[in-house]
Write a protein that binds this DNA or RNA. Structure first.
Lengths: 349, 349
DNA sequence: CTGAAAGCGCTTACAG
DNA sequence: CTGAAAGCGCTTACAG
């Protein structure tokens, strides 16, 4: 029912003061007497004044918007990431613009450019396959993995792998198959490294990179996991919940009981992992914290705060570069029964 | 290496014309001689000129940004939706700002308000549980289901259900359990209705609303599907792929072979459905088309196009209100073997 | 402590 | 067909 969108001038007029004073009062820069400032804030509230982003942006050269670019849009992590970033950004007073390169790895630059053209003040990028981010023209926070140069902040994927490895080792597993995606992914390599370390030197570990399978791996194609069980593998550690669910259903479809005959574990704790039977043991990322750190790093340099730094790599530096992952133990992993060929008995529940 | 971000004035200066002329030429409103317009466009390109959104927004009162609000952020459809909307918006020259109400159904207004405050020109809303959208202060496109008043455009969920029902019926299934989420969801109700219709009058159909289960349903809890099979249910139609995967793994875990002993089907064709074994029969939405229609409806009223209409409900009207769903038949559904109690034999493959 | 003025980069009547 | 001018809503030196 308000007659019109209130502007600074309206408040000024209402109180018979200058817009400059209103602006100063509202921005709390303290050049205004406390009493006047109070009155100004009050009538601003009464009029439900909302500053015009356009006016402010034009004047200050800052849009108050951050870009979020996920090259790999089909990424099932997207909801988690988008939610966390939006939350952190909004708390920091920023909006979040979606940048999507629709899977075309090369076209990522285009998505970034579009974001720049729209005037984002900074952006957070979740790279895939070592996409190189450099002099983009605005501060960039990269969420990848601590071992990547230019990484701003991320989960400690290596340690996550280590936790998973230790868990599996603790259950007695000594012959483990790691189901990985792309060998080009630093995140995945870190997870593999940690897994091996956690499993210990006496474990027999094999890695299959789905992407390297020939003929090219198709989602629906069986991975031959039952044969692996017959060969003595007792645990399957997938580097993503998606692959874990794939492994789980393949095993179950072949009549192999999980976790009785083989353990299965995933990564990332997507909702799916808690919904399947048996529910999946997995590693949860603290996306909220990662997002908070990434956004804080960004806003620090955007707002010229003392702590804000842009590293040589062109990306922004966070308070701390890595956030621990948390092991979530559920039903899909159990003690190693190391039962070899004689697995015909039952899949009974 | 460009010395500075080029502005309209620079182009004008370079060509010794007025900024007004440059503006007119670039916006193609045709008040400029073709030759001059060409030269202007050319130098604009050479200088890699990008208009300042802030300047334009302040002047025109339009931000060139659309809001996307999904109250149910954990929604696994999010990647699909976000990608499609971003694609459509970007093609139409708009950016997309994320609006998230973080699950708090009531707080949705807050998310919407934040978007409004940021000056979005319109927004697309995917409501849950009959959230009421009204006089928000900007054009709104609602993507829900055709039977909801105020729906702008959406999949034809009823017909999708019908297709699935017909498919199952064609395979001989006559006793089907529908796994639904919330009875408050119009989308789900439509799917249920279609399913029943497609299954035909002689089919015995039961619906279990997961949300109404007492004690409240927890993701990991078994749904007692094996017992249902013993009772003669031969097919399980889940209203989402998430639930379908849940059902599939529960059945498999209980030693019931899918699709040999029971068929399972889902909805939405998330990536998960093609990855599990057996891969899931499901219904795919044409999100790209839906997004295109929604965005077109929005931009039509934003840009004051002749076709653009705001319906009485306060939401925008699309070229057509519904888009067909497409049945994707995969391995999880098969002919009904109608094997009753004697299902002890084998889950072996 | 408060205000008048300039200007951020555009677009849009309005003249010429 | 082209241009001079005003103004969108802010913030920021600069005076007072």
């Amino acid at each position: 029912m308000r007659s019109e969108k209130p502007k600074l001038a309206m408040i000024a007029e209402t109180l018979s003061v200058s817009v400059a004073t209103v602006s100063n009062a509202l921005s709390g820069k303290g050049r205004v007497s406390p009493e006047l400032a109070d009155r100004i804030r009050e009538t601003a509230r009464d009029l439900s004044y909302v500053p015009s982003m356009a006016g402010r942006a034009l004047r200050t050269g800052r849009s108050g918007v951050l870009g979020l670019v996920l090259p790999d849009i089909a990424n099932p992590l997207f909801p988690q990431i988008a939610q966390a970033i939006e939350q952190a950004a909004s708390t920091a007073g920023y909006g979040v613009l979606i940048g999507d390169s629709r899977g075309h790895t090369g076209v990522q630059t285009e998505a970034i450019d579009r974001l720049i053209d729209r005037g984002v003040d900074g952006m957070v990028v979740i790279p895939r396959r070592g996409t190189r981010i450099s002099d983009i023209g605005c501060p960039v926070a990269v969420i990848d993995t601590p071992s990547t140069p230019g990484n701003t902040v991320s989960s400690d994927h290596w340690d996550g792998g280590r936790q998973m490895g230790a868990h599996l080792r603790g259950l007695g597993h000594r012959k483990v198959l790691i189901l990985a995606g792309s060998p080009q992914s630093t995140v995945q390599n870190d997870r593999v490294g940690g897994l091996k370390s956690g499993l210990g030197p006496d474990a027999k570990v094999e890695v299959v990179w789905l992407e390297k399978l020939a003929p090219p791996d198709v989602p629906g194609r069986p991975l031959g996991l039952a044969a692996c069980v017959r060969q003595g593998f007792t645990a399957f550690a997938a580097l993503s919940d998606l692959t874990a669910v794939r492994a789980l259903t393949e095993l179950q479809g072949a009549g192999i009981a999980v976790p009785d005959q083989a353990s299965v574990a995933g990564f990332d704790d997507l909702i799916w992992s808690s919904v399947v039977t048996p529910s999946l043991t997995t590693l949860r990322m603290d996306m909220a914290e990662i997002a908070r750190l990434a956004v804080a790093a960004l806003t620090a340099v955007i707002e010229g705060l003392p702590r804000g730094r842009v590293a040589a790599s062109g990306t922004v530096t966070a308070e701390r570069p890595s956030v621990p992952m948390m092991l979530v133990v559920r039903q899909s992993t159990g003690p190693c029964r190391s039962l070899l060929p004689d697995m015909a008995e039952g899949a009974g529940q």
